[in-house]
């Protein structure tokens, strides 16, 4: 009975997949395994996205009877909005600083971890991961506590020393610093662990061979470590870039985007504008689609680089 069923199935397979029937002999299993994820992504991500795209071409008012088609007007409106453009510039600045700082910090610290031969490195690795468990909201609450103007830790010390306290509401630079610091704090441990993983996966004999050739540590770093870890770098950069461009919770809680929009990020801008009853939500959606296009493009470029790098390796 069972084998009969199987034979039938094989025949059916042969009929639809033709000459590829051997290659595709497990196609149904494949589709079955894929189906839940495919359906969920379609229903909860792709469909909402399609609705959003369609809406971005209308002057959409949820309570109006007829929706007015406006072509690209919403996109033109949003790119002419100074705040939105500023928010992008801020995000770029944040992205550059965060990517550079986080890479340097985590890459250097990974070396410290690798050099450790005692058990202490293991303990350290377990502890540095901890901030990764904390949400942006919770981290901001803790950092706000430290930066409180009247009596937080930092200003408390400055005031004791008769120095000028730090005012994140009035000093753009400090506001930016205290948006970036919690972000670095949250991600440092995780990224250090990823870098550490990359380091220990480099075969030891590469270094031994280099030592025999009389290479110093700098040469080893540039010629061996960095090239071997290219994929780790690229993918960490993707993660950090995407994270930085989509920054929301920390500026929202720490500064509210101020002073004078110096910490306003695109997502924060969009969040604030969905509630703006006067602006049609489709303008906001158009902005959100632009954010998506930019993040998508950046990531595609990086993935393309990784892939082409891979095919070189193969």
């Amino acid at each position: 009975m069972k084998s009969e069923g199987k034979a039938k199935l094989n025949a059916f397979h042969a009929k639809i997949f033709g000459k590829n029937k051997f290659k595709y002999r497990y196609a149904f299993t494949g589709y079955a395994l894929l189906a839940p994820a495919f359906i969920l992504l379609t229903v909860f991500v792709v469909v909402p996205l399609l609705i959003a795209i369609v809406r971005s071409f209308f002057d959409y008012r949820s309570y109006a009877d007829v929706q007015k088609f406006v072509g690209l007007d919403n996109y033109l409106t949003i790119i002419r909005t100074t705040s939105f453009v500023n928010s992008f510039l801020n995000a770029l600045l944040f992205a550059v600083i965060i990517v550079v700082a986080q890479l340097l910090l985590s890459f250097s610290f990974a070396h410290v971890l690798k050099a450790d031969k005692s058990g202490f490195g293991l303990v350290t690795r377990a502890i540095v991961y901890i901030p990764y468990l904390i949400s942006g909201v919770a981290a901001s609450i803790v950092f706000l506590f430290m930066t409180n103007y009247g009596g937080g830790l930092i200003n408390g010390i400055l005031l004791q020393l008769d120095m000028k306290p730090i005012a994140i509401d009035m000093e753009k630079t400090w506001a930016r610093v205290f948006v970036i610091l919690p972000t670095l704090w949250l991600g440092f441990g995780y990224n250090a662990l990823v870098m550490y993983a990359g380091l220990i996966n480099i075969p030891k004999d590469y270094y031994e061979a280099a030592t025999l050739d009389g290479a110093n540590w700098w040469n080893k770093l540039i010629k061996i470590t960095v090239p071997s870890m290219m994929n780790y770098f690229l993918l960490t950069i993707v993660g950090l870039l995407t994270g930085a461009l989509a920054m929301f919770e920390i500026p929202f809680m720490m500064t509210g985007g101020g002073p004078l929009e110096s910490t306003l990020t695109p997502v924060l801008y969009l969040f604030n504008n969905y509630r703006n009853v006067l602006q049609s939500s489709s303008v906001t959606i158009a902005g959100a689609i632009l954010v998506m296009i930019i993040i998508g493009t950046l990531n595609s470029v990086v993935f393309f680089l990784v892939q082409s790098k891979k095919s070189e390796d193969d």
Binding site: L49, I51, A246, F271, M292
Partner: peptide, 27 residues
């Protein structure tokens, strides 16, 4: 597993990771 349209399905599902939540919030 090999199956027809694998490449297409892969790109389709993989690229959903670039859609930020804020874009599809209301919809």
């Amino acid at each position: 597993v090999d199956f027809p349209f694998k490449k297409f399905l892969w790109i389709y599902m993989f690229s959903t990771m670039f859609i930020p939540g804020i874009t599809i919030l209301l919809t």
